Simulated assay, not measured.
Amino acid sequence: MKARPVRMGAVLPQAEIKPSDPQAVRLFAEQVERLGFDHLIAYDHVLGADSRSRPDWSGHYDHEIPFLEPLTLFAYLGATSSLELVTGVLILPQRQTALVAKQAATVDTLLGGRLRLGVGIGWNEVEYDGLGVPFRSRAARLEEQIHLLRRLWTEPAVDHKGQFDVVDRAGINPLPVQRPIPIWIGCGDAPTALERVGRLADGWIPHPTLGAGHRLAAAWTAVRAAAERAGRDPAALGLQGQVRLTTGGLAGVTAKVERWVALGATHVALNTLEAGLRWPADHLALYTQIADAWRTEDP
């Protein structure tokens, strides 16, 4: 695949891995890497609501949609893949901060520094209830967690007494290879969320519903402005694009990638979810078709 001014990746089509064959998941990661892609994104959900008993359920997924826990998955894939592995996104406020710090540091160590931790607040109150975490405080909790994670990844011992977490003169060992592990925030374009990205994150993972047009461009401008107000360099922020794949022509895919590049994306992942494809053969065939066509374009 031709070298482009953006890092190209793939989204693991979690919801379509039926049955959940671990060999097929590993094959998918290995094949997209062989095709020239350099990062793999995995989504995260711990619990799915039973939609059969909830006639008014309107969530994006329910209890019948499979999700592999991403950090566990990455430890498995890292043994045979050299891809950068990305959570897109881990619903951080549902989890104990110190435990996430330990798990992420372990995975980053096993991967040799190839973990990128995308985090977000989520939307599924049922999931929060099942995990025993207050739903309404999730944004404030996320902010405290980001600060604490970075300390736990860079300091041998931490003394932290916050609103949500207490670490009494303790630390994790081993520390990760990356100190700290990059934290990217995934969200839509609510002003408070965009301000949080610019103020705290290493990069932004826009919600796919924002598209790649004027709405996204305005949100990215707001993120960069928030970074400047916080005394940070907006040019140092990463932007993760995403392009839905179908069996349509290559020209459409290339044009969508180039729109992300023009916007300033540092990474773009292709996504075969909901494209009517059989797992895993059809998904890999489409990635192969696109990679082959891009190689043909190379001078």
Rank of each mutant, 00 (worst) to 15 (best):
W57G: 13
A285C: 04
D62C: 02
P19D: 04
M1Y: 10
D44W: 00
Q14D: 02
A75N: 12
Y61C: 07
Q289G: 08
P55H: 11
R141T: 01
G241I: 00
T97C: 15
F164D: 02
G48N: 07
R34M: 12
A98F: 07
E143W: 03
L270G: 00
R295F: 15
A293R: 10
L27Y: 05
V223G: 09
L263P: 06
R151A: 04
Q240K: 05
D56Y: 07
P22F: 13
G231F: 02
T296V: 11
Y287H: 13
T254V: 09
L277R: 08
G36A: 14
L99D: 11
T192P: 14
D189S: 15
H39V: 02
G252Q: 12
H207N: 08
G198F: 03
R151Q: 11
T72G: 07
Y43T: 13
W204G: 04
S58F: 03
A29F: 02
E274T: 02
R278N: 09
V257K: 00
T296I: 14
A225R: 05
T106H: 10
E33R: 00
V223A: 08
R151W: 02
G249E: 15
P182F: 09
L131M: 14
A251F: 09
P5N: 11
W123Y: 12
V107N: 15
A101E: 08
K102F: 02
G112P: 09
G211S: 06
E143Y: 10
L47R: 06
G249F: 02
Q242T: 12
G132P: 15
G78I: 02
N173Y: 03
D168W: 05
G59D: 13
S81R: 00
A29S: 10
E125H: 01
A281H: 12
A49G: 09
W184T: 01
L71G: 07
A222N: 09
L83T: 10
W260S: 00
L131I: 06
A101G: 11
V6M: 08
R151Y: 03
L200C: 06
L239E: 09
L250R: 01
Q163K: 11
